[in-house]
Simulated scan of single mutants.
Amino acid sequence: MSAVFDCRDADQVLTGMRHARQAIGRGELIVLPTDTVYGVGADAFSPAAVQRLLDAKGRGRQQPPPVLVANVAALTALVETVPEPVQRLVDEFWPGGLTIVLPSQPSLVWDLGETHGTVAVRMPDQRVALELLEETGPLAVSSANLTGEAAAVEIGDAERMLGDSIAVYLDHGPSGAGVASTIVDATSLVRPGGEDAKVRVLRDGAVSRSELARVLGDLLEEPA
């Protein structure tokens, strides 16, 4: 039986956060608010928990979940390196609706799916999410919906789609943006042969191409 906590209530938020931390520690799934849409989260370093997340959404391993972090230090621990243009993006858009794909740190022992040695990382601009991430560490988080359905912008949407596959639901009212994060691929800035490297937009979302171009200039790949 899932537990639902209203994090707008001072008493419920403390209880809800405790239950969410415990659920993550047991390898279970939670639904948490973010600044874009609601997300379903799991311990990023538990392969069984990540597989549970994929199963709950009806996704395969070829669609690995992004990882949410509480701060920029966590990004540097998860990726091989942070190129200067990516640092500019982080300075401008984090916390916020930009997910950045980079080669992952080779020493990490985890299994997010078929990532081809990369990881997609984002720092959300949402108080409850950031406080939880500070306590749990990085979480694998994907939009709280079944594959093919619209992303949940209210907790009831997530409950309807995911039901008892989720141990704890953290409610914080309607999502601020209601638009998924923009995803950019910056791996070519790191990997060999990157003299003509560009940052490629994989998914349009909360951060517009014009905003990205303002920061990256010619390093932003033109749309096909």
Rank of each mutant, 00 (worst) to 15 (best):
D164Y: 06
L14K: 04
V207T: 10
V4D: 08
G178R: 01
L32G: 02
G27A: 10
D164S: 05
I24R: 02
D204G: 10
V153R: 14
S143L: 15
D9R: 14
G176S: 11
R52T: 05
Y38N: 09
A186Y: 05
I166T: 08
A74R: 00
S165T: 11
E114K: 00
K198W: 15
L139G: 01
A197S: 11
E84S: 10
A140E: 00
D125I: 11
S208T: 15
K198L: 15
L212N: 00
G148N: 08
R59I: 02
G58I: 01
P95L: 08
R21I: 15
R200Y: 00
A158Q: 08
Q63L: 15
G27M: 07
D11F: 13
L132R: 07
G178L: 02
Q105S: 01
S2K: 11
V82G: 11
A44F: 06
G96Q: 01
D9V: 05
V201Q: 14
H19P: 03
T182C: 06
A20V: 07
D185R: 00
A42M: 12
P174R: 13
Y38I: 11
V168W: 11
P124W: 12
S210H: 13
T34L: 10
R191D: 07
A224R: 09
A152F: 15
M123W: 01
G178E: 12
P106E: 04
D9M: 14
L216M: 12
P106N: 02
T147D: 15
S165H: 13
G194H: 10
D185E: 12
S181P: 04
A10V: 11
L170E: 08
S175P: 02
A3K: 03
A3M: 15
L53Q: 02
L139K: 02
R191F: 04
A140T: 07
R59P: 06
S188W: 09
L98F: 13
V79H: 00
L89Q: 03
L29C: 14
D196E: 12
E28Q: 13
L68V: 13
T34D: 11
A140P: 02
M1Y: 08
P138E: 01
A140G: 00
L219T: 04
A77D: 14
W94D: 13
I24E: 12
A151M: 10
F45P: 02
E114N: 00
R127E: 12
R18T: 09
G27F: 14
L14M: 04
M161C: 07
F93V: 04
V168D: 10
A49K: 03
D157I: 05
R21W: 12
T118W: 01
D55L: 08
A44T: 04
G97Q: 10
I155F: 03
W94L: 05
V86F: 05
T34N: 13
G58M: 08
A120Y: 00
L29E: 12
D157F: 07
E149A: 07
T76N: 03
E211H: 09
E134N: 09
C7G: 06
H172V: 03
E28S: 01
V4E: 12
A186P: 05
R203D: 13
L170D: 02
